[in-house]
Nucleic acid binder design. Structure first.
Lengths: 259, 259
DNA sequence: TAGGATGACTACCGGCCAGTATGATCCTAT
DNA sequence: ATAGGATCATACTGGCCGGTAGTCATCCTA
């Protein structure tokens, strides 16, 4: 049952590995030479794990599955990773690291806090929509050892407090409508996290477009701007919203799409 | 004669009340008398399952766990429920039913759509914060048979479209700021769904209070009211070039591997 | 008071799967 | 050309857990 690595270019799927159309490419499948760095393979293992977790869920994915996706066997996976739990952890870190980076980066920006927040949330959305989004969002502490669970919790908390701080600063500098920072952060992060539940790569919208759409909702709110709720039809209250795909977002650094 | 009062276990779609606080009580533990109705016990099983799923996750909960929580044995559980999957399904239905009910109820209200939406979302929040919230939110299709997965998906879709419709109506009657109904519904539902991830019963806030806080955020939006509608806040600090956010790493971030 | 219906337990099976023992094969350096 | 390390496969174990068979206990009704 176990397919040896003897499977050469078969069924055309593994040609010369064009970037990747369906699943992440396997460095093993390519060739036999060992010149590939260990780290490259290790990352391939993690990426394959993320891909499998994404599609089948953590508990429904066996290490044999992950190994098979790379055309190797289970011991090979264990050669690069100590156990299944660690795989999940690494996927989580890979995703969350993007958000932490974004938080660090906006610190130096000299724009109103709402714009900094906006930039962070845009990166946030892209991280959640990335291949590691599922792992980042769905990890349950019960699946992890106490140590790793604590580690993850602290990273999550760091992000949460970073967002709260931006909100607080925004309220202070007047760029954000007065609100409760904690609840607002929960609401924002929640809706972004949820993207991981429905977004699929072949979606019509890119992650950046989704982020833009969400930011429009967050920024404007449901209650109409301007005239207080008198009978006014759908007016184009603010420029750029509506059917227009994407307004020129001024000078805010557009989040460079990962990968 | 013919006291066959109970249909096949499948048919009895019991509407389980969210009920009491603390952990669910066991009808068995209470006493030995058999006068308790079968349906009562069946609901107790489901509620115990929800409680266990909540705390340990679906896959980390064995049917022995659920049985033990009720001071019975596994075959007893199987006497009331056909399999584990069905338990999860029933928990989902119990939670989602509240939202569907809310959607039906507001249909008759003659208030602006934004207020109807608000009412629905308030119920939504409470359902998600209920004991069945976890199941409602975390069910993964991969854990369910094709039939049940489809069933759940249709119920979710029904709710989604109900919310979208309210948003659309609100935009039309002018009570909601013009927006994309689909994306807005995603954003709203997402942040509410996420409540299930962090809310615990002994929290300082009740579910209703959380709902109110969220609605305040949704209604007002981040951008200050009365402020210029261009993309930026009132204050305009000099946009000094700090460090530009750099591209997200192509390589996996190095993981601080524990252990 | 027999007999069916209901409710629950003991004891087990079988499959899946994480993780491992062992060793073959290749690469590199000396 | 050979030692030693790096890489990976075959084959196995051991435990957990969903699910079932068979059986007993109790209650209700006639």
């Amino acid at each position: 049952m176990r397919t040896r690595r003897t499977r050469a270019p078969e069924a055309g799927r593994s040609r010369i590995q064009p970037a990747l159309n369906g699943r992440p490419a396997s460095p093993w499948r390519a060739s036999r030479e060992r010149l590939l760095d260990r780290e490259v393979k290790r990352e391939a293992v993690i990426r394959a794990a993320a891909h499998a977790f994404n599609h089948k869920g953590y508990h429904n994915t066996s290490l044999d599955d992950i190994a098979a996706a790379l055309d190797v066997t289970k011991p090979t996976v264990y050669y690069y990773v100590s156990n299944k739990e660690q795989l999940l952890f690494e996927c989580f870190v890979a995703g969350v690291e993007q958000i932490r980076a974004a938080l660090r980066q906006v610190k130096s920006l000299r724009v109103p806090a709402r714009e900094r927040l906006s930039a962070v949330l845009r990166n946030y959305a892209q991280a959640v929509a990335s291949e590691f989004g599922w792992c980042m969002v769905r990890v349950e502490d019960q699946d992890l050892s106490a140590a790793m669970s604590a580690h993850i919790k602290s990273m999550k908390s760091e992000i949460d407090h970073g967002i709260r701080r931006l909100i607080r600063e925004g309220v202070q500098d007047g760029s954000i409508h007065p609100c409760d920072p904690k609840m607002t952060a929960f609401a924002l992060a929640g809706s972004l996290n949820w993207i991981a539940h429905w977004y699929r790569e072949n979606q019509s919208m890119t992650a950046a477009e989704i982020a833009d759409a969400f930011m429009a909702v967050f920024d404007n709110g449901l209650r109409p701007r301007g005239a207080p709720a008198a009978g006014n039809g759908p007016r184009r209250a603010t420029a750029g919203r509506g059917a227009r795909p994407r307004a020129a977002r001024a000078r805010l650094p557009q989040a460079p799409v990962a990968r």
